[in-house]
Design a protein around this nucleic acid. Structure first.
Lengths: 108, 108
DNA sequence: AGCAGGTACCTTGTTATGCATGGTACTTCC
DNA sequence: GGAAGTACCATGCATAACAAGGTACCTGCT
């Protein structure tokens, strides 16, 4: 279900931005195709607005050779810290869920 | 953040119930203390109501030696299927997130 | 010229769900 | 008889994913 992605998607976006600047349409494709995470534009645009308001990303407009101009997103220092912090929480969280699921599964 | 637990908590509850019947107060303690997942009663009671409406759990009232009566929850066959289905989705999802976080981390 | 299709941006409204808060009732102990 | 602990529950808020719908630019076909 889509509730799974709650609170995680934004950090997936930050992780992709750590690799270099991206624009929204590109992010949708990468997250949708490659990882089965996400999603639709309706998810990404509000999400990116939030990241901007938090000061986790900066943006620059650039012309495109083929189509309308693109708004490119880059990670700020604050954004990087937020991402690192999440990475630190994700591990324990994942382990806790794994333990719950696995320990019960082995009872059968 | 608490958004992490979205859509996962209910399956953690189902997983605990696979191990045997529990009552709500007990579930709060187990999920809160042991796993750092969760939470408060305000989370668990509505959640259990939903599980009942879905037909994923059954309940029986039992007297307690020390305190008010307890409502015990048990897993139904439908609930078990739902849990198994989630377990099948959790693995790939986890891997997808791990890949995103790790691959970027190793760039530094 | 005009139109379709693709690319790119965005907003609004719905829905799901975690949590805070507050309320009831039973038992035990001082 | 009052406080603390155990147990149940409901109401309301905030958040975030998603669907749906809207604008605008470019290319290519006819």
């Amino acid at each position: 279900m889509s509730q799974l992605r709650r609170g995680i998607l934004q950090f997936c976006v930050l992780a992709l931005l750590r690799d270099g600047e991206r624009y929204a349409f590109e992010l949708v494709r990468e997250l949708c195709d490659a990882h089965g995470l996400v999603t639709s534009e309706g998810t990404i645009y509000p999400l990116l607005s939030r990241l901007r308001k938090e000061g986790w990303v900066n943006t620059v407009w650039k012309e495109s050779d083929s189509g309308p101009p693109r708004r490119y997103y880059t990670l700020t220092a604050t954004g990087r810290r937020a991402l690192d912090e999440f990475a630190g929480e994700w591990g324990p969280f994942k382990t806790a869920v794994d333990n719950l699921l696995d320990s019960e599964e082995s009872h059968e």
